[in-house]
Simulated assay, not measured.
Amino acid sequence: MEGSSILQASTNIYFAIFALFCFKLLIKISLALLTHFYIVKGNRKEAARIAEEIYGIVPGSWADRSPLHDAAFQGRLLSLKTLIAQGFNVNLVTTDRVSALHEACLGGHVACAKLLLENGAHVNAVTIDGITPLFNACCSGSVACVNMLLEFGAKPQVGNHLASPIHEAVKRGHRECMEVLLAHGVDIDQEDLQYGTLLYVACMYQRTDCVKKLLELGANVNAGKRLDTPLHAAARKSSAEIVILLADYGANLKCRNAEFKCALDLAIPNSKVEQALLLREGKGLFCLFPFTFSSLSFPLCRFKVEQYLFILPETFFLIDLIFSVSSLLILSLYHATQK
Rank of each mutant, 00 (worst) to 15 (best):
K304H: 14
S61P: 03
P269F: 01
A235C: 08
L245E: 05
A121S: 09
V58D: 14
K171A: 09
C177V: 04
G284S: 10
D189K: 06
E168W: 07
F73P: 00
A276E: 09
A85S: 07
A19S: 15
P133G: 06
V201S: 15
A183K: 06
L278H: 03
D64N: 14
L215V: 11
N119F: 11
I29S: 12
N220K: 08
G284R: 09
F289T: 14
H335Q: 10
E53F: 08
F316K: 13
E241V: 11
M148Q: 04
K81F: 01
D96C: 13
Y55R: 08
L309D: 15
L264S: 03
V273H: 04
H184V: 05
L285I: 12
Y308A: 11
Q157G: 12
P313M: 06
S99G: 09
K41V: 11
G87Y: 07
L288W: 12
Y195N: 02
Q307K: 15
I322K: 11
R280H: 14
F88C: 15
K45N: 08
L83T: 05
T208H: 14
D248F: 01
A169D: 07
E52R: 01
L92Y: 00
L318D: 10
L116H: 10
A19C: 12
L25T: 14
G130V: 00
D209P: 01
L20V: 04
A63D: 15
M148L: 12
E118L: 14
I242K: 03
A219M: 05
C177G: 05
F21Y: 13
S4P: 03
E191F: 10
A125R: 10
L83I: 00
S326R: 08
N257A: 03
V126E: 06
V98N: 05
E259T: 03
G173T: 02
I128S: 12
F152E: 09
G218Q: 12
G120D: 08
A247C: 01
N222I: 01
D248R: 04
C210H: 11
H167T: 00
V143C: 02
S324N: 03
E2I: 06
F323D: 12
T229H: 00
S239D: 12
E176M: 08
N89T: 11
F293R: 14
R172F: 08
N12R: 15
A169P: 07
G87V: 08
T337V: 07
V201R: 12
V211R: 07
I6W: 11
V221L: 08
P67S: 10
H36Q: 14
Y334V: 07
D248E: 09
K24V: 10
F37E: 15
